[in-house]
């Protein structure tokens, strides 16, 4: 299962790779990373068929996670559409509502609870 993580903080990459160390070794999951919404869209143009799940930060300079979500829903509607989970440090109701209205499948708050994330992956 290929997962795209979009976050402007570069250090989330080793974090994900280590947290999912066992899963990666057993080839249950595979990670790719993008550091901005723009980069994520370019990546998706090539590989949207492969990507099952997109985890995106909302607060990024330039294109925000919400805008990225809107683009994903507009540009890649072919079924099955990728599952998109939004991640944010601002876990308030307004942010949640906005993300869900724009078509997010789930909403996670920072600091990320990786055990919870793993549980959610099992249901995909």
């Amino acid at each position: 299962m290929k997962i795209l993580v979009v976050d402007d903080e570069a250090d989330v990459q080793p974090l994900f790779l280590q947290r999912f160390r066992k899963e990666i070794r057993s080839h249950e999951v595979e990670f790719d990373f993008a550091q901005s919404g723009e980069e994520a869209l370019n990546y998706l143009k090539e590989k949207h068929q492969e990507v099952v799940l997109i985890l995106s930060d909302i607060n990024m300079p330039g294109m925000s996670g919400i805008e990225l979500l809107t683009h994903i829903r507009e540009d890649f509607p072919t079924p099955p559409p990728p599952v998109v989970m939004m991640i944010t440090a601002y876990g308030d109701a307004e942010n949640y509502k906005q993300a869900m209205d724009k078509g997010a499948d789930d909403f996670l708050t920072k600091p990320l609870d990786f055990n919870l994330l793993k549980e959610k992956l099992k249901t995909l």
Partner: peptide, 10 residues
């Protein structure tokens, strides 16, 4: 919050 998250996570 961001660096603290990293400290905790790492």
């Amino acid at each position: 919050q961001n660096p603290l998250n990293f400290v905790n996570n790492f």
